[in-house]
Amino acid sequence: MKRLISGLPLLAAVIFGGFFLWGLNPDRDPNEIPSVLISQPAPEFGLDPVPGLETPGLSQSDLVGNERPVVVNVFASWCVPCRAEHAVLTRFMEREGIRLFGINYKDKPEDAVKWLNDLGNPYERIGSDLSGRTGIEWGLSGVPETFIVDGDGTVLFRYVGPVVGPDAVERFTEALTQAGALPNVAES
């Protein structure tokens, strides 16, 4: 009994030390929010196109019945990281052949049109979410956020923040490959 009790402080130190070690891990992001959408069907939504753009709007039915997974990117012209991410997504679209859908989040249509005219428009469809209500349906915490949605409309992957930089691109590519959203890879 005495030996058991004398071991308790050590045990407590080990448990607390373990927690500290876990907390010190630089890869741990306390701001990371677990998404409830993963493995769930994409939320119900229907968005009109951005006025002034020829790109059609986006709704939930566009995400169902696709041959292969699609990428849904939430962006805005006022979002600075989106600008950097735009180049990455455009490259993914042109080189890897992903299908890219956009949700234009709380953006003035004229700003969005100008932004896309300046940078190019890699999106197949763009829905204009002026009120931000569709963003809530997706459990959005900010822009940009990027989702991979399976052909049957199931959300497979969520990336919070811009897909910019080697680590992010690697993680995203891995997710795309796993989802089978890269036709060029599948063929080779």
């Binding site: 701001n31 929010i33 709380k106 009120s131 931000g132 963003g135 809530i136 959005l140 915490s141 900010g142």
Partner: peptide, 19 residues
């Protein structure tokens, strides 16, 4: 969801307002 441990009632963040 974008603040550190703040309720939406006291947050000025855009998402908090939407919620």
């Amino acid at each position: 969801v974008v603040c550190q441990n703040q309720d939406i009632d006291s947050s000025n963040a855009g998402v908090a307002r939407d919620l």
